[in-house]
Computed example of a mutant assay.
Amino acid sequence: MAKNKTQETEKSVYQFLDEFVDTETKREESKILINLMSEVSGFEAKMWGPSIIGFGTYHYIYDSGREGDAPIIAFSPRKAAFSLYIFRGNKEESTLLPRLGKYKMEKGCIYVKKIADIDLSILSEILKNTIRLTLEQYPPQTDLT
């Protein structure tokens, strides 16, 4: 079985921002997202793979047998836009998206060029919904020993 390429690392989130995010504006906007996602999720920011900043973790097992761990919510400050890994596609989120602001979407990922282009209170509601749905679908594992 292939190993999941995107795994939590020990790299510092802020070191990543300083070394790999090319503009001060993008670094500052990343910090806004870090603060918001941390506040909403209750988890501190962790690096996942070389460029994803994630919050919390869940364990998934697909029908195919493939399994792994992933962040509950996450983003990546890419050169062209922020990639927000947060959309689960339910009706509640679908009603929030038209009020989010300027974004593009593909395969459940929301792309935002500038944080000023979106309503952070709507983003906060989408984050809460994503966290709830993810944890309902993939409840935290408990050790019964």
Rank of each mutant, 00 (worst) to 15 (best):
M1P: 07
A2I: 07
K3L: 14
K3M: 14
N4H: 04
K5A: 09
K5C: 03
E8C: 03
T9E: 12
T9S: 15
E10L: 02
E10T: 04
K11P: 03
V13E: 07
Y14H: 15
Q15R: 07
F16S: 00
E19K: 13
D22I: 14
D22F: 07
T23F: 11
T25D: 03
K26E: 00
R27I: 12
R27Q: 11
E29S: 00
S30Q: 06
K31T: 09
K31Q: 02
I32E: 13
I34Y: 12
N35L: 04
N35P: 01
L36G: 15
L36V: 12
S38E: 15
E39H: 14
V40D: 00
S41F: 05
S41R: 04
G42P: 01
F43I: 01
A45M: 03
K46R: 08
M47T: 01
M47A: 07
M47S: 13
M47D: 02
G49D: 07
P50H: 02
I52Y: 00
G54T: 02
F55I: 15
G56T: 04
I61T: 13
I61W: 08
S64W: 06
R66Q: 08
G68K: 05
A70W: 04
A70P: 04
I72S: 10
I72P: 06
I73S: 08
A74S: 11
F75D: 09
F75V: 13
R78C: 09
A80P: 00
F82I: 13
L84C: 01
L84D: 02
L84P: 08
Y85E: 01
Y85H: 03
R88I: 10
R88E: 15
G89I: 15
N90C: 07
K91E: 08
S94E: 15
L96I: 02
L100S: 07
G101C: 05
K102H: 14
K104C: 09
M105Y: 06
E106L: 07
K107P: 02
G108S: 10
C109M: 12
I110R: 00
I110H: 10
Y111V: 01
V112H: 05
V112E: 02
K114V: 01
A116W: 03
D117Y: 09
I118T: 05
I118N: 10
L120A: 06
S121M: 00
I122M: 11
K128Q: 08
N129Y: 09
T130N: 11
I131R: 06
L133C: 11
L133G: 08
L133Y: 00
L135S: 03
L135E: 04
E136A: 03
Q137R: 11
Q137N: 13
Y138M: 09
Y138P: 06
P140V: 07
P140E: 13
Q141R: 15
L144Q: 12
T145D: 00
